[in-house]
Amino acid sequence: MLVGKLLNPSYRVRVIKAHQLDEGKVLDGFRRAGFHVSEVGKDLDPELSVESFLSSSYGNWIYVIRLKRGRVFLARGEGKVPGLKSSDSDYLVRDDNGLKRLLIREVSKKAMLLIEVPRVVVWGLVWWLIWKYFEEYPLGTFLLFFLGFVLNDLASAVEYFVIGYCRE
């Protein structure tokens, strides 16, 4: 993606759903690769759990690992884990605040709703304004369709600078 090369993010986050895999092998693989692995407990506040993980680890690659029975682990280290392919759940993160916001969103469903609602409202308003404008000018709809790929990258860049992260 062109945006990923231009933005130069501080962190990269990848969400992995490993429901079918043996959790011992998955976690040992991350530890052997030099990653600090920590479980996000359900008894703690998600924000406190994420903050303690971020303060006790280092590295610019963070993995959110979802295992069986709803268990969630965070792994942080330098460089990619060998053998993992990129997925739809790869994120570029601008700074520590964006990283914290993204990890809280991925760890807690309640926090995800609270964080995503403003984003959906803003983008809904943008699309409503575009729709109203293009109702009057039908030629604009065709231009929007053909320029959609460029506008998608532009939307990712806007998300990156406004909320601190975007999909890769």
Rank of each mutant, 00 (worst) to 15 (best):
M1Y: 11
L6S: 14
L6D: 12
L6W: 11
L7D: 09
N8A: 14
S10I: 02
Y11V: 07
R12T: 15
R12C: 06
V13E: 01
V13F: 01
R14D: 01
V15M: 03
K17R: 11
Q20W: 05
V26W: 01
L27I: 14
F30Y: 10
A33W: 12
A33R: 02
G34F: 02
F35Q: 05
F35M: 15
V37I: 13
K42G: 14
K42E: 12
D43C: 08
D43V: 05
D45P: 05
D45T: 09
L48N: 03
S49T: 03
V50D: 06
E51F: 04
S52C: 06
F53S: 05
F53N: 02
S57N: 05
Y58I: 08
I62F: 08
Y63S: 00
I65Q: 00
I65H: 00
L67E: 13
R69W: 05
G70T: 00
L74R: 02
L74D: 09
A75M: 06
R76A: 11
V81G: 01
V81D: 01
G83E: 01
G83T: 08
S86T: 13
D88K: 07
S89I: 00
V93M: 03
D95V: 00
D95T: 01
D96L: 15
N97V: 11
R105D: 03
R105Y: 12
K109F: 07
A111M: 09
M112G: 04
L114A: 05
L114R: 14
E116V: 11
P118Q: 13
W123I: 11
G124A: 03
L125P: 00
L125D: 11
V126F: 07
W127A: 06
W128Y: 10
K132L: 05
Y133N: 04
Y133Q: 08
E136A: 08
Y137C: 04
G140P: 07
G140S: 02
L143P: 02
F145V: 06
G148T: 09
F149H: 03
V150S: 04
S156K: 13
A157W: 14
A157K: 14
F161D: 13
V162W: 15
V162H: 07
I163V: 12
Y165M: 08
C166W: 13
